[in-house]
Write a protein that binds this DNA or RNA. Structure first.
Lengths: 217, 217
DNA sequence: GTCTATATAACGATAGAC
DNA sequence: GTCTATCGTTATATAGAC
C-alpha cells in the first residue's frame, strides 16, 4: 500500500517529491503532468524522481491511492459514525463540503482517473479492503420502515447526498463561467449550501406528523 | 465558430475526422488523446489530420466548442421553454438525464477541460453569445414571491437540479465501484432517478396548502 | 486530397561522476 | 543521495511524391 512507500525511513526528499507530485498530478492528471514539472515543484532534479519512484506510473499510483484513501476515509468516518440519521445528514453536509472546499481538485481528479482506468479502483479495494457504507444503508432502510422518512431506495438517498455536496465543487469553473459569478461570490454560495442544504434535504425526506399528533409535544 | 469549420463544403473526410476526434478526445481528454489514435479511428492517415486542422489544438478546439454548444443548447432549450415551473422541472429531469445517458462522457470531458484551462469557456461565450438561463431564474423568484415554493436562492435551486442530474452520470464508474453495482443495475438506478427525481424535488420545494384550503379544490 | 517518409521537439528513463 | 549529461522513444508536425 501507499504507506509502505512513506514509512518511517522516508527521507525529507521523498516527502518533498510526493508533495510536489500530489500538487501536479491532482491538477493536471496522469497524462497532463510532466516529470520535469514535478521535479521543479519539488526543487530537485528530474533524475531524483526516478531514483525514488523508478517510473512515472509508480509515482502517480502513490498519489492516486493516497488521494482515494483520503477522500473515502473522510466520507466513511462521517457515514459510519454513531449518530441519528438526521444528525448524520447535518454532519455530512457541513463537514464533507468543508473538506471538499479545502481539496477542491480532489474529487474531479479521482473521477477523471477512474474514468480513464476503472481497474485502479478495483486494485484500491483489493489492497485497502474497503466496503460500501453499509451502516448508513441499513439506517436509511430502518427509518423508512419506521415511517420516519419517505420510502426511498437507500442508494438513491446516498446518490442525492453525494451529488448535492460534490458536484458544485467539481464543476465550479463551469458554473462560475455560465452564471458569471466571481470567486468570492461563489465561495458565499458554497457557504450558504453548507448552512441550508442539510435542513432542506432533511425536510424533503422526513415524514411530517399530522397536526393532531404534533399537538402532543 | 464551430459551424464555420463544418460548413456545406465540408468533405466526407473532414466529417470522418471530426467524428473520430470527438470519440477520442471526449474519452481521453486533450493531453491523453493521440493524433495517431484519431487517425486510426477515422481510417485515414495521420498527415491528413494536419492537412485539415493543422494542429492538434485546432482539432481539439473544434471538438470542444461543439461539445459545449451541444450540452448547453440542450440545457437551455429545456430551461427557457415556455412552461409552468413544475412542468419544467419534470421535463428537465426526464429529458436531460436521457440526454446524459446517451452522452455519458460529455459532462466529465467539459468539466475536466475547463478545469485545465478556464479561458476556453470565456472564449466560447465570446463567440457564441450565450447568457445565463435568466428565464428560469426569474421564474423561480416569482414562485417564491407567490409563495408557491419555499424561499430559495434561484442559483441554489439550479445547482441542486444540475447536481442531482449530472453527478450520478459523471461519477458512475466510481459509484459502481464503491457500491459494487454492475452496469445493468446501475442503468436501472438511473432509470429510477428519471422517474422519481422530479416528483421528489418538486415536493421538496413546494409549499403545501393547509388542509382547510385544500378542501376547496 | 491522400499517401510515405522524415524532421523536430518533448518526454520518460538511465549512466556515470561526485 | 544528488547531480549533469545523454539515450531511446514517442509525439506533433512538415515535405514531397502521387
Amino acid at each position: 500500500m501507499v504507506n509502505d512507500l512513506i514509512n518511517s525511513n522516508s527521507s525529507t526528499t521523498q516527502i518533498l517529491i510526493l508533495k510536489a507530485a500530489r500538487k501536479i498530478f491532482i491538477k493536471k492528471g496522469l497524462s497532463g503532468a510532466r516529470m520535469q514539472e514535478i521535479a521543479d515543484e519539488a526543487g530537485i532534479n528530474k533524475a531524483l524522481l526516478h531514483y525514488y519512484y523508478r517510473t512515472k506510473d509508480n509515482l502517480f499510483n502513490a498519489v492516486f491511492m493516497e488521494a482515494l484513501k483520503h477522500i473515502q476515509s473522510e466520507f466513511f468516518i462521517i457515514l459510519n459514525s454513531d449518530r441519528d440519521l438526521f444528525d448524520k445528514i447535518r454532519f455530512f453536509f457541513d463537514r464533507y463540503i468543508s473538506f471538499l472546499q479545502e481539496n477542491s481538485f480532489l474529487p474531479g481528479f479521482i473521477i477523471h482517473e477512474i474514468n480513464q482506468n476503472p481497474d485502479r479502483l478495483v486494485e484500491f479495494f483489493k489492497n485497502a479492503g474497503i466496503r460500501p457504507p453499509i451502516n448508513l444503508i441499513i439506517q436509511v432502510s430502518e427509518e423508512v420502515k419506521n415511517q420516519r422518512i419517505i420510502p426511498i431506495n437507500p442508494i438513491q438517498f446516498l446518490l442525492n447526498m453525494l451529488s448535492l455536496a460534490i458536484f458544485p465543487i467539481i464543476a465550479s469553473p463551469l458554473i462560475k463561467g455560465i452564471f458569471e459569478i466571481d470567486d468570492p461570490d461563489y465561495k458565499d454560495i458554497i457557504e450558504q449550501r453548507k448552512k441550508e442544504l442539510a435542513e432542506w434535504f432533511i425536510d424533503s425526506i422526513m415524514i411530517k406528523k399530522s397536526s393532531n399528533e404534533e399537538q402532543k409535544e
